[in-house]
Design a protein around this nucleic acid. Structure first.
Lengths: 144, 144
DNA sequence: TTTTAATTGCGAGTTTTTATCATTATAAAG
DNA sequence: CTTTATAATGATAAAAACTCGCAATTAAAA
């Protein structure tokens, strides 16, 4: 079973496998959307795993440093969000009205990075793209 | 002269033309890069225009609401940044090392939005794209 | 086991941003 | 050019989102 396959993942990053840590990784991995530190904290509580909020912050930061998670800032929310660092990266479509976040699988700018690298002499490490708009539900609700 | 041509701009948005407000708009307009509230606050001080920090926050927020400015979150800095809302939108290339921010004029995903609109039935309002990497200077400095 | 070093909890401290409310300034009306 | 209504500002406090220091705990190496 892949129950606790975070053990190896943590180990490879030189991190100890603690209950909180693997629980947080699991929460990230199971979540379809980026989550805030507070959401992780509450989710842990749900699972009867007590953890201090500052530990959650620290852990998320550590996971991001070790590239096991990604830290992002989605516009409209001042808080940092975190997502599991999947091999295939994702972009999100965010509804400006209801704040719903929907993953987009296709990345429209992968090719563009090379062009940009040549043009600017930067070594491109990655990019961040989010698209904003109004979801079908909210389009109907608004119609003013 | 276009010295105080922010007057009309503010007026059209139903905002009073105050000294602080037009000074802030001018700072945004003249800046090649997005700026934080604090930077605006300090820049005002430089110009001998006293303004309270909370006024700066409030003003930036108002300008963003009225679409005279755009509010953004560039990764790596937890603070909100603001830029003048130019007709042609811009993307930025950010150096992960020295935090330098360079505008990119070309937008590689304009076309993609239409496709996405059809596919998701969202009404797309805009997008946010930043590219991250290492600038030529920092590439040399690092070489470890 | 025992030891060593990483991790956590807790409390306090920062930083960034927002709210309240009395005062002041803008611009509309007279 | 005043007066007046309303919008904007300053000052202060407070909320929200993190971050830090240090003692206690725990994981894993010896």
């Amino acid at each position: 079973m892949k129950q606790d396959n975070f053990d190896e993942l943590l180990r490879r990053s030189g991190l100890k496998n603690t209950k909180t840590r693997s629980a947080i990784l699991e929460i990230l991995e199971k979540s379809e959307q980026p989550v805030t530190a507070e959401q992780v904290f509450l989710e842990l509580k749900n699972k009867q795993i007590s953890a201090n909020l500052s530990t959650v912050y620290r852990t998320l930061e550590t996971l991001a440093e070790k590239m096991l998670a990604k830290k992002l800032n989605i516009s409209g929310d001042s808080r940092a969000m975190f997502e599991y660092n999947r091999l295939v990266h994702r972009h999100y479509l965010v509804c400006l009205e209801c704040k719903k976040i929907i993953p987009i699988d296709f990345c429209p700018i992968k090719n563009y990075e090379k062009t940009l690298e040549e043009k600017t002499k930067f070594k491109i490490a990655g990019h961040k793209l989010d698209v904003y708009g109004y979801c079908p539900d909210c389009q109907n609700k608004i119609q003013e």
